[in-house]
């Protein structure tokens, strides 16, 4: 009879490169929070989030913008005295929240990641303008104008491609992707 997993174990299970449950090793020193360049924009600092995971405050953790504010710079990871790959733990939280569709409303991160994966599954290559609709409307009128100005100057400088690229062996590529995740009609 399997006991129900703690939230901490669930997240640790989603951290491929770590073994066992590294989250348990945290000594709450706060080196991660002091190091994180995005900490001031997070609802809870990385140290707090780890504490909350260990206290099984699943709903509060998932509702926080913290893990979607992680830029994956791994500064916390290389400094953690307990050897926790904290940036990878943030990825695990992102995956968990995508899986359960339980992230904070209004965040751009989940929509961005999803449209990115769809784009790659569809063409094999990244193409910036194709991503825009997923998040542009969230910037508000001022942000839209800034974005349009920037895009115009980039096109003018010959830095913005106007046509998407595709890989040649797309059919086999998509068969490969389908062996891992189900993708619908490639669009």
């Amino acid at each position: 009879m399997a006991a129900e997993l703690s939230f901490s174990d669930e997240i640790a299970n989603m951290m491929y490169a770590s073994h066992g449950n590294p989250i348990r090793e945290c000594i709450q020193c706060g080196t991660c929070s002091g190091t994180c360049p995005a900490a001031e924009f997070m609802d809870h600092t990385p140290r707090q989030i780890i504490g909350m995971i260990r206290a099984d405050l699943k709903d509060e953790v998932l509702a926080s913008n913290t893990y979607w504010s992680c830029a994956s710079c791994y500064h916390c990871t290389v400094r953690c005295p307990a050897g926790i790959d904290i940036a990878d733990m943030m990825y695990a939280l992102k995956r968990y929240s995508m899986w359960k569709k339980s992230y904070q409303e209004g965040l751009i991160g989940p929509a961005f990641s999803e449209s990115f994966v769809k784009m790659i599954a569809g063409s094999g290559r990244s193409f910036e303008p194709q991503l825009a609709p997923a998040y542009l409307f969230k910037y508000g009128p001022r942000g839209l104008i800034q974005e349009a100005q920037m895009a115009t100057s980039l096109v003018f400088k010959g830095r913005m491609p106007l046509l998407p690229r595709k890989i040649k062996g797309l059919e086999n590529f998509q068969r490969m992707v389908r062996r891992i995740i189900p993708i619908g009609e490639s669009s």
Partner: peptide
């Protein structure tokens, strides 16, 4: 020849195995 996008930081939030495979 005919390389594909490495996914940068955007695949990992969706599926780790897919990220490695690409």
């Amino acid at each position: 020849e005919d390389w594909n996008c490495c996914g940068a930081t955007a695949y990992f939030p969706v599926d780790e195995l897919l990220a490695y495979t690409l």
